[in-house]
Nucleic acid binder design. Structure first.
Length: 641
DNA sequence: GTTAGGG
DNA sequence: CCCTAAC
């Protein structure tokens, strides 16, 4: 018999199974970290595979370029002698260079493997007279590809490769340095992809701000979003920077996704490549997710409409990840899996591997000098990073806005949640945030001055923050910590697992083609989108499910608030409505065949308990009056005996 | 503010 | 997860 008292002491007799006694909720949850790391597909490997294939392709054939290339060809024919060059510059690395670096004289075989580095303005670069250019750009040529029509193909290939490579390096940065990145790169490594297109202008111009999905990683989604935001930020910045007017003009004239076309470029020749497939799939998912996001993000934003910060960032998106557990395991990073990293002095170590800059497209005459190219790049980068940037902290994709919250309170040192950092500019106002960058816009026409596109003062948010396993605590790291724990009375020392990439995820808004074409700077369009933003999907972990089951077994199915308090009191992202919904899905999940279930598999034992508890409570209707309830007429069946 | 359900 | 009617 199950006595009422017993019920409230931990569960039913029949539920002896894996009941976690009274261990602190926090501890219960701690154990639920995804241990799928072993099975993860190393993003890097995948990247390498893809890059390798593409490289081969591009070098042996010129026929696999797709629509984009066609566009290029046209341009070429019309161009007088300046053979249009679409150069995709390698991911730009923003790193601290202490060695005298290449000057503008370095020869750079055009569509080759260009590598841009940002370096402190300690060098004397004659042509760097641009005031806005606080950094200097160096170009390192690592390839001898000669320019040719299909150059863009090669470049893209190498670019992707480089993009992946970038993450392999480890750099530590100071958070405060990031805030004024343009003048104090204490050790920032980033990348920016640039596309250089020829034009009749003497000066290099940023050709367009169309964004391309640049990362071949499982977390491409993040990168994708990131890029979009960069583009937005760029637009915003240029809008306010006289010096960048020219660029802005060009930029704002063409906004369209390159992602779609490029995806196709990859597909044909790599159809058999599993990695590529997965990659593409991921991108598609991302794309779909974005669209989905667009439809709902407006709802939520209203809640944060008055915040000065781009609150919509707080709910990062990971929906596409949800359906692909593997992807998630890759994307999700975990910090502090291993307590050994937790030092006793109560400090948390943060080592940010890199900050990324979005891919940019630059249009520059073939006859331009390296110097001008540099300036152009610098302008672009400066436009993005040169302004006031803030660093946002994301925990499990959720932005932590309360600067007064300690790491401990936030759970950074206790949970295995993903931690990320984002660079975010000062948003004039949330209402200005609007979507754009329709992925399906037609290829850019190099000769037709596109109509002034709607300038999207959207939210420029950069995905950054990658913690590496560096156990060494460098000053920068310390600084970073200090910033993060600003008002903390204490800081926990946490170490980040190496292979773990902790990234921020940035939700994106898009503008549908129609809107894009007609919506200027007014707030009409944003009106719809400023309402809200859908929360990030955060699948329940097994341990969470267990906690939920345990609580429901005890409290019943009509006291979600109590369940919340009992088992998820410290999980701010789980509302009682969420718990109720989860229970609903659990009941459903338990009633379907294992083959039909998706996501992280829930132990059958738990599902059995769900069914039992569900059945029990629905029959006995022991809801709010549980305490004074008489003995249940029917006890829950023993699930595991 | 909570619940309960549909979407 | 979101939205909301109905407490």
């Amino acid at each position: 018999m199950v006595s009422k008292r017993r019920l409230y002491n931990g569960g039913f007799d029949g539920f002896l199974a894996p009941v976690v006694p009274k261990a602190p909720r926090s501890s219960r949850r701690i154990s639920h970290k995804k241990s799928s790391a072993a099975s993860e597909i190393c993003p890097f490997e995948l990247l390498a595979a893809v890059a390798g294939k593409l490289l081969q392709e591009s070098e042996s054939s010129v026929s696999s370029t797709g629509p984009e290339r066609k566009e290029q060809i046209t341009v070429h024919e019309e161009g007088v002698k300046q053979e249009p060059l679409e150069v995709k510059i390698n991911p730009l690395r923003l790193e601290y260079l202490d060695q005298g670096c290449c000057g503008e004289n370095e020869f750079v075989p055009v569509p080759s493997n260009l590598e841009f580095k940002l370096e402190p303005a300690v060098k004397d670069l004659p042509q760097s007279d641009n005031d806005s250019a606080l950094e200097h750009t160096s170009i390192i040529s690592t390839s001898d590809f000669s320019k040719e029509v299909n150059a863009n193909v090669k470049l893209e290939t190498s670019n992707d490769l480089c993009d992946g490579m970038m993450d392999t390096k480890e750099t530590k940065i100071q958070t405060n340095a990031v805030e004024k990145l343009s003048e104090d790169f204490t050790a920032v490594k980033s990348c920016v992809n640039h596309r250089v297109l020829s034009s009749s202008c003497n000066n290099a111009h940023l050709h367009r701000n169309n964004v391309k999905i640049g990362g071949i990683r499982d977390d491409d989604e993040n990168y994708f979003s990131f890029n979009q935001h960069i583009a937005k930020m760029r637009a915003l910045r240029w809008q306010s920077r006289p010096g960048c007017r020219r660029i802005r003009k060009l930029l704002t004239t063409t906004r369209h996704w390159k992602s779609a076309p490029k995806l196709k470029n990859y597909e044909p020749s790599n159809a058999t490549n599993r990695g590529v497939k997965a990659f593409d799939q991921d991108r598609k998912n991302v794309y779909m997710r974005e669209r989905c996001q667009e439809a709902t993000d407006a709802k939520r934003r209203k809640l944060f409409h008055h915040n000065s910060k781009p609150d919509y960032v707080q709910e990062t998106s990971s929906e596409s990840i949800s359906n692909t557990p593997k992807a998630k395991s890759v994307t999700s990073s975990v910090i502090n899996h291993k307590s050994p990293f937790q030092s006793k002095d109560g400090h948390v170590k943060f080592s940010i591997k890199s900050f990324k800059v979005p891919e940019l497209y630059i249009e520059i005459p073939e006859t331009s000098t390296i110097g001008s190219l540099k300036r152009t790049v610098v302008e672009a980068v400066t436009a993005i990073l040169g302004g006031e940037l803030h660093v946002g902290v994301l925990l499990q994709g959720e932005k932590i806005n309360d600067d007064n919250t300690t790491l401990q309170q936030t759970g950074v040192s206790l949970n295995s949640d993903t931690l990320g950092f984002i660079l975010e500019p000062n948003l004039p106002e949330a209402s200005q945030i609007e979507q754009f960058e329709p992925p399906s816009l037609p290829p850019f026409d190099n000769h037709e001055p596109p109509p002034p596109p709607p300038i999207s003062p959207a939210s420029p948010i950069m995905d950054v923050g990658f913690l590496n396993s560096s156990v060494d605590v460098d000053p920068p790291v310390v600084t970073c910590l200090e910033n993060i724990t600003e008002n903390n009375q204490e800081s926990k020392q946490v170490s980040i697992e190496e292979a773990v990439d902790i990234k921020a995820i940035v939700p994106i808004r898009q503008l549908n083609p129609e809107t894009l074409a007609m919506v200027p700077l007014n707030h009409k369009v944003s009106k719809k989108t400023e309402l809200s933003q859908r929360r990030t999907r955060r699948p329940f972990s097994v341990s969470e499910v267990e906690a939920l089951v345990e609580a429901v077994e005890t409290l019943g199915t009509g006291r979600w608030r109590d369940v919340k308090i009992r088992a998820f009191d410290d999980a701010n992202h789980r509302t009682y409505v969420d718990l109720k919904d989860k229970w609903k899905t659990l009941v459903h999940t338990a009633s379907i065949s294992p083959q039909q279930r998706r996501g992280e598999p829930v132990p059958q034992a738990l599902l059995d308990r769900v069914l039992a508890a569900h059945s029990f409570w629905t029959q006995n209707q022991l809801k709010p009056h549980g305490k004074h309830q008489t003995e249940p007429i029917q006890t829950l069946p023993a699930v595991r005996v």
